[in-house]
Write a protein that binds this DNA or RNA. Structure first.
Lengths: 208, 208
DNA sequence: GTCCCTCTCCTACCTTGGTAGGAGGCGGCG
DNA sequence: CGCCGCCTCCTACCAAGGTAGGAGAGGGAC
């Protein structure tokens, strides 16, 4: 039996979620809280397996509550359930220690499987949240040889190394070519990208 | 019926996967390829719903194949199935356009549900891959007002402008100080941050 | 074949960046 | 008060970056 605690400021929502959980035979609602402060207190007493947490709440919000609860008990499984899945909610929530992130417009059984996943140590995410997560993670790749228009293969290579902060001599050594060749490529790169100096070129290498 | 194409250089693996898929009533294996080149050709002809793709392959590897396939048909669903889930495989694969990423040590039914998810437009990920994805995405939070230790107010100011790609002369003009003063600050910054040159300093200005 | 692009490298020159060392003014602190 | 840290600026020098122009080798397109 999975012991669940519900945190949401809207009583109606809480009631609906409780009914939903009660309908599942392996899930039991052991407590409810209407704001962050109550959630923190209740969680330390009840020690539920999974805490379903709304973010927008009066007083202490869900992010703060999550952060406190996880800080007090790192094994706590906080599953965020909210209406808004934008970056301003998602990343702070994950930063705070939430193990999953579901949206309220998800089908009911997604919440139930999400709760089961959270209890099992997994990380449930709504699909479009997941998509943004992936995009973000990919954009954050340090080695980002993002295809730049109009540059030759060799130029792209040089551009990447400039972006790493290497000097012309280092680039030459790395690419087994002469320093003058590197300069030739860099001059071409600066003209093509409109960079007045090497630092701007390096910045260009990172974000267009 | 979901039409699946299998890409893996090891024939034994392909046979195993084929049996697994054949056992599922809603999945049909319509083609196999042993390397990237064959995968690209076959995919354009078969137009499978889902392509299960290994990464390590002789000749054209899975990343390249994925990239080509997705470029040719953006609606293609490439599901990576590999032994290694490290960053060097994961992010290039996602960059190339893979819609999901599963590990070969996953339970068999995880692959089947993964294929179904991929066909349905979702993004299946193995749990520990997902965990790394989350960590990366969280670490990449742009709003990181990282206070830099040990730098004076003026130095931080110069650092910011270096990060913008300004030359010493431009920085001097902007800050109403002499070029030599700018140089003094920059020398201090480079020693403090351990940057061997201005580009590295600029990169430091952006992410520690 | 010819043309064009890419990659390679060269010389020469000028600008910018970066190092070394010193110095004066200012404000806080013991 | 004297000391220290920060900010300002200086000279001088050397290293590196960047510009201009040319040139040969190789490959693909026409």
């Amino acid at each position: 039996m999975i012991r669940v605690m519900l945190v949401d400021d809207q009583q109606l929502i809480r009631a609906g979620l409780r009914m939903l959980c009660d309908a599942a035979e392996d899930i039991e609602v052991v407590g409810e809280a209407g704001d962050g402060r109550a959630a923190i207190e209740l969680a330390t007493g009840l020690l539920p397996d999974v805490i379903v947490m709304d973010l927008r709440m009066p007083g202490v919000d869900g992010i703060t509550a999550t952060s406190r609860i996880v800080a007090a008990r790192p094994s706590a499984r906080v599953l965020v359930l909210t209406t808004f899945g934008d970056d301003d909610h998602l990343y702070p929530a994950l930063q705070a220690g939430a193990c999953g992130f579901l949206l309220k417009d998800a089908p009911p059984d997604e919440l139930l499987t999400g709760i089961r996943q959270a209890a099992a140590g997994e990380s449930p995410f709504s699909q479009d949240v997941l998509r943004r997560l992936v995009r973000r993670a990919v954009d954050a790749r340090p080695e980002a040889p993002r295809p730049v228009e109009g540059l030759t293969a060799r130029e792209r290579e040089v551009l990447g190394l400039v972006g790493e902060g290497l000097s012309n001599a280092e680039i030459a050594e790395r690419m087994f070519i002469g320093v003058t060749t590197v300069k030739t490529h860099i001059t071409a790169l600066m003209t093509k990208t409109g960079s007045p100096n090497r630092v701007r070129l390096a910045l260009f290498a990172h974000r267009g």
